[in-house]
Design a protein around this nucleic acid. Sequence first.
DNA 1: AAGTTTGTACAGTTTAAACTGTACGTATAA
DNA 2: TTATACGTACAGTTTAAACTGTACAAACTT
Lengths: 161, 161
Amino acid sequence: MFENKTEITNKIIVEFSKTIEMFDLTPAEARLFTYLYLEEKPLTLDEMSEALGKSKTAMSNSIRNLANLNLVTRVWKRGVRKDLYKANTQLFKIFVNSYINKWIDATNFQKMSLAEIHKNVKQINKPIMSKEELATINNYLEELIEFHNEIESLFTDMKQD
Amino acid sequence: MFENKTEITNKIIVEFSKTIEMFDLTPAEARLFTYLYLEEKPLTLDEMSEALGKSKTAMSNSIRNLANLNLVTRVWKRGVRKDLYKANTQLFKIFVNSYINKWIDATNFQKMSLAEIHKNVKQINKPIMSKEELATINNYLEELIEFHNEIESLFTDMKQD
DNA sequence: AAGTTTGTACAGTTTAAACTGTACGTATAA
DNA sequence: TTATACGTACAGTTTAAACTGTACAAACTT
């Protein structure tokens, strides 16, 4: 089956990174996270680059995004100049939190955009369309905004659990 | 503010399609769904193509994916040769159901892949790594599989609500 | 003070996804 | 039976995302 440890960890990286791509990570970010997770000791950008066959610049961009999502932590070690990073290990908590936050933020932002359109539509007094058309558009906007409310509630409830 | 109805519906399409892209739709699929949603009568591929400025082939591919996700319904009308499609209108139900199903399916699939790796690792009897290394890998696999179980439960619970 | 290391901004290249146009098989209309 | 319409497979093109390599500023080492 498996001939060595590297083969096993590579297989795990391939499979687990597929899972966490679903949390809106790029393939490179997903593989980097998985590699850090399986590698107990913190890694430098150069080590990440060498391990994953990507440029240092690509690793810098990926690790920054992972850090912004609170999926990895920068580690300070005395006498070491290079930045060190390690994966956060409470997988369910960190991924679901990050994901729920992203959904709530984005949903709220979109709801506000639609609410703005709705406000502007209500303030129309020029005869640019019939009353029926205006009522229809208002109905659609209300439905769309209600949809956002429901999505927001769904993810807010998930956060409590 | 708005000068005509088309301007309003275009603005709504832009904003709402951003929301539903989050359900793993491509920008073209999201715009198509939103257009169908706002357009009460069912549309043909040619009408979709003309309305959204994309080729008929692109519309064929997009509408097929939306139908596969149960987000739109093909409508049969006597004496009409062209396929007709309309958006399903219970937004929360159709999007959340589609999304939860996708998560449960994908998570289950990945869990099985990792379980297969785990099974193979357990069957290792050749000395390809130390006992400590083997124990560590087994621990990681258990954690990753447990993570999948938790994600699956999370989305299964969402389905009940 | 000078040299080296480090991470990242930036510009250009590559890759993968999305697209278009054509060809084709099937179904319908004439 | 023949012609036309229709949706989609397929091949090639375009676009957007991801990448690499270089340059640079800041920090550290010598």
